[in-house]
Computed example of a mutant assay.
Amino acid sequence: MKTTGNTILITGSTAGIGLGLALRFHQTGNKVIVAGRRKALLQQITTDHPGIEAIELDVADAKSIVQASELVAERYPDLNVVINNAGIMLSENVLAPDSLKGAEESVATNLLGTIRMTYAFLPQLMRKNDSIIINVSSALAFVPFPIAMTYSATKAAVHSFTEGLRVQLADTSVRIIELAPPGVRTTLFGQESDEQAMPLEDFLDETLALLHGEPTPKEIIVERAKFLRTAEATGNYDNVLGMLSAWKTPD
């Protein structure tokens, strides 16, 4: 991926990894469009960082995605990178009936959001000769986190969808990249102060170094995520699953 001169749309970019990527890309001379549901946060970002632009977008809403794709095609005809980063991570107890709603919301946001974004923006990306779709899955796509089992399932599905998408688009100008983060110190699952999670700036440093490498890998897997990505291949799956199974929500 070229380091500068891109026009990049990032979903879920009002905080965490999405905002971190937006700021890094903006600093290196790319046109960045942040997208999210909360208008006040979007306005704050554009005020604090002149040159970054914003659109309202709810990836759990099919109509919102279509409207955003039409707006972007008109306003940003040079768009060549879409990063499907928006996601939610909720704890879940299958014995508690009220957990079902959160599970359904996870599927709508994490999986259907990524699929719908791809279908909506692909026609515009196909018109460019240097287009990239980056789907953000998770290291938990490869070994599930039992207390967030639907989150893990959606990310496994995003991984599978991304693999198939890459094959289908192999003969086009659109490159497909998967970014599978480990636990990072963000608010996604209340990990902003978790010593076991990877510091955000360290994650961004390593991620961007990999993304801008030659050739660009089809998967961006930082060192912290590799033990999960390779758990099954190395025969460590049961041990890693056991480790994740021992995690309990704080009282």
Rank of each mutant, 00 (worst) to 15 (best):
N6V: 08
N6E: 14
T7N: 14
L9K: 06
I10W: 06
G12H: 13
G12W: 14
T14D: 05
I17S: 04
G18H: 10
G18Q: 12
L19V: 07
L19K: 12
A22M: 12
L23N: 11
L23P: 02
R24P: 05
H26W: 04
Q27H: 13
G29L: 12
G29D: 03
G29F: 00
N30S: 08
N30C: 05
K31P: 03
I33P: 12
I33D: 11
I33V: 14
V34I: 11
A35W: 12
G36Q: 11
G36M: 00
A40P: 01
L41F: 01
L42Q: 08
L42T: 05
L42P: 04
Q43S: 14
Q43C: 04
Q43D: 15
Q44R: 13
Q44H: 05
I45Q: 15
I45Y: 12
T46C: 13
T47C: 01
T47P: 02
P50M: 10
G51Q: 03
G51H: 08
E53F: 04
I55P: 13
L57V: 12
L57T: 04
V59D: 04
D61E: 15
A62V: 01
K63T: 13
K63M: 08
K63L: 15
S64R: 10
I65C: 07
V66L: 09
Q67D: 10
A68Y: 01
A68P: 10
S69F: 00
E70M: 09
E70F: 04
L71D: 11
L71G: 07
V72K: 10
A73W: 00
A73C: 09
R75D: 11
R75S: 14
R75H: 14
Y76A: 09
Y76V: 05
L79M: 06
L79Q: 07
L79Y: 08
V81C: 13
V82E: 13
G87C: 06
I88Q: 08
S91T: 11
E92M: 14
N93E: 09
N93L: 00
V94H: 12
P97I: 03
P97M: 04
D98W: 05
S99F: 07
L100K: 08
L100V: 11
L100Q: 08
K101P: 03
G102E: 03
G102C: 01
A103I: 11
E104T: 10
E104L: 15
V107Y: 11
T109F: 09
L111I: 12
L112M: 12
G113Y: 01
G113P: 03
T114I: 01
I115E: 04
T118I: 15
T118P: 12
Y119R: 13
A120I: 01
A120S: 14
F121D: 05
F121V: 02
L122Q: 09
P123T: 06
P123Q: 07
P123Y: 02
P123S: 02
Q124C: 01
Q124W: 06
L125K: 06
M126W: 02
M126S: 12
K128W: 00
K128F: 00
K128I: 09
D130H: 13
S131R: 03
I134A: 00
I134V: 03
N135M: 00
N135E: 06
N135F: 10
V136W: 02
S138T: 01
L140I: 06
L140C: 05
L140W: 08
